[in-house]
């Protein structure tokens, strides 16, 4: 007989956050604690439906007694811990990480990154015009997805969403090593020949716009994508009886994109190809 764990009741843990005493449930991360007290920490590779990848290092904070800074998205609060989110070391790290990212990748469609950069005075051009970059042509090999890896920051979220954390299709993986590391199918085979099932769950979690739906990409290209004119309405998918929640992004009475609420106990932000793309029929009019 196999027994599957379902967790134990939680205690409270007390620690010091930027000089203030804070109590959080056992198992909470530093980031959870910051969010709870209204402190904003920038994150890129963190995903509310995913295990921490610890890759981007934007959310690093200082923990007294630790030789290095620690990732707030994954480090769990310990009793008596003394954490600083705004120390000089933290600021320096955040600034440099943003500069390094900005010097190698196109962050033009990454939400909030401009605010963060100006807040810490980051200037990615400091590394000079000859700094090696990841810029490359956009990949369009199917009618539903666009992959613009010049915008990829290697946050691992698409790989994790496609892999054993949600979709279990394993169509993509990180390949290569170091600066050459990149997201790829086996032998960079086009998506239609890969294990991809077009659930769009990778796009759902992509923090930079490196992955996008074809419709959104095309509208951005022809200048008709306008988020200020869009409404977002959450409803329920009609393609089977599971009851997946869909958030319809509507512009000019047209569905232009479908996402899924991450806090739904049914979907946790995930959908299948039908839920993600099967809306065109209502607007064949």
């Amino acid at each position: 007989m196999t027994i599957v764990e379902i967790g134990l009741p939680k205690r409270l843990v007390e620690f010091t956050l930027d000089g203030e005493s804070v109590r959080v449930p056992e198992g909470a991360t530093i980031l959870d604690a910051c969010t709870a007290v209204g402190k904003s920490i920038p994150t890129l590779c963190y995903g509310d439906t995913l295990k921490p990848a610890n890759a981007c290092r934007v959310c690093m904070v200082e923990v007294e007694g630790s030789r290095t800074l620690v990732p707030s998205c994954s480090r769990k609060v310990e009793p008596g811990m003394v954490v600083r989110t705004d120390s000089e070391r933290t600021q320096h790290s955040r600034k440099l990480v943003l500069e390094l990212l900005g010097s190698a990748t196109d962050l033009s469609t990454t939400p909030h990154v401009d605010e963060w950069m100006s807040a810490c005075g980051a200037d990615p051009s400091r590394f000079g015009p000859d700094a090696e970059t990841k810029l490359q042509p956009t990949t369009v090999d199917n009618p539903l997805y666009v992959r613009d890896y010049g915008k990829c920051i290697m946050c691992y979220k698409c790989v994790d969403a496609c892999g054993d954390q949600w979709q279990n299709s394993f169509a993509i993986s990180v390949a290569g090593r170091g600066f050459d590391a990149h997201i790829s199918t086996e032998f960079a085979t086009p998506l239609p020949d890969s294990a991809c099932v077009y659930c769009g769950n990778c796009i759902e979690v992509c923090p930079t716009g490196a992955l996008s739906f074809k419709r959104e990409h095309d509208k951005r290209e022809d200048g008709t994508w306008d988020e200020s004119k869009q409404t977002r309405t959450t409803t329920v998918c009609t393609f089977c009886g599971v009851g997946c929640n869909l958030t319809l992004h509507v512009q000019d009475n047209e569905i232009v994109k479908v996402t899924s609420p991450h806090d739904s106990t049914v979907t946790h932000g995930n959908l299948c190809i039908k839920g993600r793309f099967g809306w065109q029929h209502v607007q064949n009019r």
């Binding site: 610890n54 890759a55 981007c56 290092r57 934007v58 790290s93 440099l96 990480v97 390094l100 990212l101 010097s103 190698a104 590394f127 700094a131 090696e132 920051i153 290697m154 990180v174 290569g176 090593r177 170091g178 600066f179 050459d180 590391a181």
Partner: peptide, 16 residues
């Protein structure tokens, strides 16, 4: 050459 590429400071920092 030997950076695994997982985290930003090392992946891009070693190049810079």
């Amino acid at each position: 050459d030997e950076s695994c590429g997982q985290c930003v400071p090392c992946r891009i920092g070693t190049v810079r």
